[in-house]
Nucleic acid binder design. Sequence first.
DNA 1: GTACAGATTGAG
DNA 2: TCAATCTGTACT
Length: 205
Amino acid sequence: MIKRLPRKFYLAPTLTVAQELLGKYLIRKIDSKEIRAKIVETEAYIGPQDKASHTYGGKVTKRNKTVYLIGGHLYIYLCYGIHWQLNITTQKKGKPECVLIRALKPLKDFREEFSGSLDQDLANGPGKLTRWLELDKSFDSQDLVKSRRIWIAGEKHKSKFDKLKKSQITSTSRIGIDYAEEWAKKPWRFYISKSPFVSKKVSQN
DNA sequence: GTACAGATTGAG
DNA sequence: TCAATCTGTACT
């Protein structure tokens, strides 16, 4: 059995949430169809202190204001004028931290063992997964705890499918933020080790 | 008001 | 290697 994650999940430290999101299920309802996927790659952005973050220095703009909402909301923005990026806010209201979802493993069934062959190139990048899930600006500030269109779930009872062991998580520096100086080196990108569904064009250091 | 870079992607 | 395409931000 899987169950929607409660608000509490998103209030843990952002780096913890970024790692615990790995292996969780993202469910997107389009009309009567339910699309399911497992989160396999994330990046953490730690608010005011993080130069790579949109909320560096605590600034508020029309674009980033949803990051200031309480944890569990979606922050969706357009990047390079073309790609929508899916972020999940963390922390309490007023603390602008979030987790970027970079890659998903499409699932037919919640137990991936029962899923047949799936397209590895469908959601292996932050811009590709939003296109696949048909997410855009209209989803900005949606509440994952309440929304009927999108939410995240995990195993209701602790099981071997629930929490990943540390050894199953690889951490590296984040992607595409070379301008952030020393913050660009922080190992705040996390992905499930050896998953063929993580984003490409990326160093595996 | 104008200029320009950006948490990317896919085609050549 | 590079264009697509548009918003936020820092200027004039």
